[in-house]
Amino acid sequence: MSTFMQILFSSLETGSVYALASLGIIIIFQTSRMQNFAQGSVGMLNAFVATFFLINTGVSPYFAAFVGMLSAFVTGMLVDFVIMRNAKHVGAIGKEIITFGLIMFFLGIAPMIFGTSPLSFPRFIQSGTFEIMGASVTHNAVLNIVVGLSLMTLLFLFLQKTKWGLAVRVTASNEKTAQLMGVPTKLITMGAWAVAASLGALSALMLAPAITVNVSMMDSVQISALVACVLGGFQTFYGPVIGAYIIGLSKNLLHFYVSSTWGEALMYLLILIFIIFRPNGLIGKKKIKKV
């Protein structure tokens, strides 16, 4: 039982990381109708920014994380302003290829600026553990879980309750009509890119203490987040988040109870089989394409 609880809590922590990343992907998908494959690498680059800032100024990790998220916010805005806005004529596949180009660009530029050796980002809370039902959970893990969950709750409240949230949802459902109704879709799309990028940076920083800040740190997060979107369905904002927690949990369970080498591979295989039966994901509805 205590082992299971231990797995449950560590899954909640990794689940939060995946959920933040996949939330970024789905926000962009909903507003721009394209998949952002560069979500992870934007997070990686800005995790470097935060760590570099931390090392050179010696501020607290919280402030460094804030700086990282801020620089990610700007990165996201720039990506939209410089590239995506001027690529309206390109089509969804072209835009996805642009994000592949961005991955290569960020992966190339990071070692140029910050050097090739991995940097280490400290935990937000250095020490201390809670004993919950036989499982020992670090304070830092609890913080990550709480921050992840509350940030997502806030975002959903924002989407459902505020006027700007309504604007986002309108843009998501039909951009042209939204434009005609006076919704500033350009601003919404730019905001979506900015928020997505800072969510990516936060997820990278949550992960950073465990695996150091390096260029390939977000590779597996990126894949898990995309698979979470497939699992949860691309049609709703909350589907991918649920998918992300399921992936976090099943990855750890398979890892512990089945095989430590093949757990992850097995999970991807199971999800591939799952989408045969539910092609639109757990929560997805079928979208009818009009000609």
Binding site: I83, A87, I97, I98, G101, L102, F105, L107, I109, M112
Partner: peptide, 22 residues
């Protein structure tokens, strides 16, 4: 000799070609 130059070169080319010379 700068690390990552090839990636930056390719990445920028992808974006530029898709946007301006599809």
């Amino acid at each position: 000799n700068v690390d990552g130059l090839a990636y930056v070169f390719t990445g920028v080319l992808i974006v530029v070609v898709i946007m301006f010379y599809p």
